[in-house]
Amino acid sequence: MTKVTMTINGKSVSGEVEGRTLLSSFLREDLHLTGTHIGCDTSQCGACVVHVDGKPVKSCTMFAAEADGADVATIEGQANADGSLNVIQAAFQEHHGLQCGFCTPGMVMSAAALLKDNHKPSEAEVREYLEGNICRCTGYHNIVKAIMAASGQDVSAIAAE
């Protein structure tokens, strides 16, 4: 077992991990941060996306030991300080960008990573950026729309109720 210390959602945390302990397992099993989900074994579905040192990472494809000393952000830390939904989360709700909710944490984390680097992404840029996030419920229409709306773009012309 190895001791790891990292900052998660602004708080310093420590734990004992095996070499094989994935960051996702450390978050879910040791820290009970179960918003990060596991939907596949091949690093493709993206339900486990978190940010490590500001970059989107599939937490199921990184060992906890490798995150020692890192600054990690998960879905649990995304809301505003007063507990209200942040602009991306609010846009997902407003535009019905989620159904079963299982892929949603990864989608929100990927969206946050995109909007940090690209303040006004086009539809094509959003779709391409979400290549590593699979959703089975929404057909992506409202996810793409929500992310564009969260960036401040007028999405009223994009069809939907």
């Binding site: 993206g46 990573a113 950026y129 290549e131």
Partner: peptide, 9 residues
């Protein structure tokens, strides 16, 4: 290559 999260690592 891959997707953004893969490219981070």
């Amino acid at each position: 290559i891959g997707d953004p999260a893969v490219r981070s690592r």
